[in-house]
Amino acid sequence: MSNIIDTLALYMGYPFVRYALVVGILIALCSSLLGVTLVLKRMSFIGDGLSHVAFGAMALGTVLNFTDNMLIILPITTITAVVLLKSSQNAKIKGDAAIAMLSVGALALGYLVLNVFSKSANVSGDVCSTLFGSTSILTLVAFEVKLCIVISIIVIAVFIFFYHKIFAVTFDEDFVKAVGVPANLYNTLIAVIMALIIVLAMNLVGSLLISALIIFPALSAMRIFKSFKGVVICSAVISVFCAVTGILISILASTPVGSTIVCADIIMFLLFSIIGRAKEGV
């Protein structure tokens, strides 16, 4: 045991480990907050689709030699999020099909572009690390950490400030519209925040595992808690706990960060499901 603590203390000495923890906690917190809304609005797949779009945008940015990929990933993902949300209301192609199409399309195009145009010697390695986030969280620089902190603060502040509106729009959009509140504005807000979180989370778990970060804590919390507030708070706690545990385990056991965090989330979900069942049985 003291051995483990020594090892951890040693790693904590490195700035990149501290960065990873800070960024991990913030992203876990943000994604879980919004996850509740997305799961309840039956939009969990939008997160998945958007993360693939973000991957495609990243590929484009790499090929076009942008100094900072964020500059291209952020706007493309945000615009897609808004368009997807708007079109799901009155489109000829149904919402889920549109998302699936976009998701697979962006993934394929992104990989194709990288393969054909990339100057990197190890394309599959690059793709693998963007998709599964195997190393990127451990290579963060101070600027990225600051950016992450700023965006996280914005996301959390917006969520708290609009909490009651977000609840109402999630529970019953038609009601909100009918009583004269601009529901579309809040929907757009949710879409923009979602895009921000996804772009952020790409650094941590990679684009393939972002949905897990968004969905699992919310679903776990919903097994036990019965109020919206309870579910939101609980899913935030679960998410942060799993992120910290996952990062620490991945350092100690040299496992990929993203997958380890998701594993922690899965275990938590199973645990909460069992507790939820047991409570119902009583």
Binding site: L40, R42, F167, F171, D172, F225, S227, G230, V231
Partner: peptide, 8 residues
């Protein structure tokens, strides 16, 4: 959607 919504 509302039938299994966690809200008081």
């Amino acid at each position: 959607l509302q039938k299994d919504f966690p809200a008081t």
